[in-house]
Structure formats: structure tokens, C-alpha cells
């Protein structure tokens, strides 16, 4: 589904990603691990097409469609969606109004209950939301958008344990369900705490450091290694 090959990215002339290779198959969930500033969020932003990331080399393809020249909204329409880590508040635009703009009122009614967000529909998007509420809303937003490839930027940070379970279940549910056209989905998840691994059956994990993928492997094994030895290659530890 997603094929990233030899991807190099810079921001204002400064390299942030270097020679990234990553392949995500339909139905898979991959985890991105790495210290702050390692390039995890930059990778998600580049896949989605957020400014100011500029590809200097390599390719990103979704279902064989090159993404590099497509603007943000075209990539979203192709089926890429992101749960933002720190989304902006949008005064005066309610969750219900946003869902209506996407034509997803029915989905909102159904999925808001599952994420314990029924009371949110009249609230302005991300305005006055707690950290945990933002994370749940971002997952709900993906249900409304119905993307095929989902990018989760630290979905569990700032969330209490009770809601980590709900978020984990929601991620698992949306990734394991087919999209509106019956096609399997896939997800790429950034985590610092690893809590999400208890609730999401991830297929593969990648450790990023200094803009490069240092190592890829089994998520649980890699996370356990990181807890003990830091962000290093297991064989070299």
C-alpha cells in the first residue's frame, strides 16, 4: 500500500530525513520509535504533505501513485489521514459542523458513542479539549474521514490509562475494518511510551535516529530493548 524508497527530506535547507525505506502492506500496523527530534513526526508530515517539508530525493507511493507532487488535500482524498499530536483549536467550528462539511454526520453519531465523545458534537473543534479529549477526537476524526492509510502521531500521550484502552481499541477497530470501498486499511503509529502496544497488534516497528531508520523488527522485542538499552541496534547492544 505505502512504499517509501530512499526518501530524503529537508526543512528550510536542513535535512530531517535521510534515505528512508519503508513498506506498509494492507492490514498492517507499523510502529515508529525514536528519541525526540529523530524524524518520526517529520516522516508522517511528509507522507501527508504538510508544510514545510520538502522532498529532496526518493519517492513515496500510495498504491503505486507517486505522492510527491500532490497537494495535501489530494493526498487526503487518495486515502491518507492523520491523527495530529497537537491540532489547532478552531473557534466557532463545532465537531458537528466539521462532520457535516465532510458529509459524515451518520458516522459521527455512531462513532462518538464508542469513543465516549457524545457530548462533544456541539463543542468547537479542539477548543478547551483536555489532552486526552484531543487524542480521542483525532481518532474520531479519522472515522469521519474514512482514510485507507492512517498516521497516528503519539495517539496515547497525555491520555489517562482508561482512555488509552479506548484509543487502542479504536485504532485496532479502524485499522482492522475495511474502508468505505471495502479495501483493507493500514496504520503507522508513533509512540514514546509503548502503552499503545498493549492494545494494538502491531506487525513491525522501526527505530528512527537522526533522520534515519536505525533498525526494524518485532515491536515488542524492540520496545523492550529500548527500555533497557536506549535507542540502539539490538545486535550491537
Amino acid at each position: 500500500m505505502l512504499e517509501i524508497s530512499d526518501l530524503c527530506v529537508e526543512v528550510a535547507g536542513k535535512p530531517v530525513l535521510d534515505a528512508i525505506d519503508l513498506t506498509l502492506k494492507p492490514g498492517e500496523i507499523h510502529i515508529l520509535l525514536g528519541p525526540n527530534g529523530s524524524g518520526k513526526s517529520s516522516l508522517l508530515a511528509t507522507i501527508l504533505g504538510l508544510p514545510p517539508y520538502r522532498i529532496t530525493r526518493g519517492t513515496i507511493r500510495l498504491d503505486n501513485v507517486p505522492l510527491a507532487d500532490l497537494p495535501l488535500q489530494e493526498r487526503a482524498r487518495l486515502g491518507i489521514g492523520m491523527a495530529f499530536q497537537r491540532p489547532p483549536g478552531i473557534d466557532g467550528v463545532s465537531v458537528a459542523a466539521f462532520a457535516a462539511a465532510l458529509g459524515a454526520e451518520d458516522t459521527l453519531a455512531r462513532e462518538a458513542a464508542a469513543l465516549d465523545l457524545v457530548d462533544f458534537v456541539r463543542r468547537d473543534m479542539n477548543v478547551g479539549f483536555s489532552g486526552g479529549e484531543i487524542k480521542r477526537w483525532e481518532i474520531l476524526k479519522l472515522f469521519l474521514q474514512d482514510p485507507r492509510l492512517m498516521l497516528f502521531d503519539e495517539p496515547e500521550s497525555g491520555v489517562d490509562l482508561e482512555h488509552v484502552i479506548a484509543i487502542g481499541q479504536a485504532i485496532r477497530r479502524i485499522v482492522s475494518s475495511p474502508d468505505g470501498e471495502g479495501r483493507p486499511r493500514a496504520g503507522l503509529v508513533i509512540t514514546h511510551t509503548g502503552l499503545i502496544l498493549r492494545h494494538v497488534a502491531a506487525d513491525r516497528a522501526h527505530v528512527l535516529k537522526d533522520g534515519r531508520i536505525l533498525h526494524s523488527g518485532d515491536p515488542a522485542t524492540l520496545f523492550s530493548h529500548i527500555q533497557t538499552h536506549g535507542y540502539s541496534v539490538p545486535d550491537a547492544a
Binding site: L50, Q73, A76, I90, G92, D124
Partner: peptide, 23 residues
């Protein structure tokens, strides 16, 4: 804000309208 809304597939004009209406 514009980028955030467009990241869900909204056209730029639609996203601007939504922000103006909200404002």
C-alpha cells in the same frame, strides 16, 4: 487551521468558508 482542515480532504475554499463561518 487551514492545513488541519485540508488534511481531512477539504478543498481550500471549503476550509476557508468553514473557518470564516466559525469566526
Amino acid at each position: 487551521k487551514l492545513t488541519y482542515l485540508m488534511a481531512s480532504g477539504m478543498a481550500e475554499d471549503a476550509a476557508r468558508d468553514l473557518i470564516v463561518r466559525g469566526f
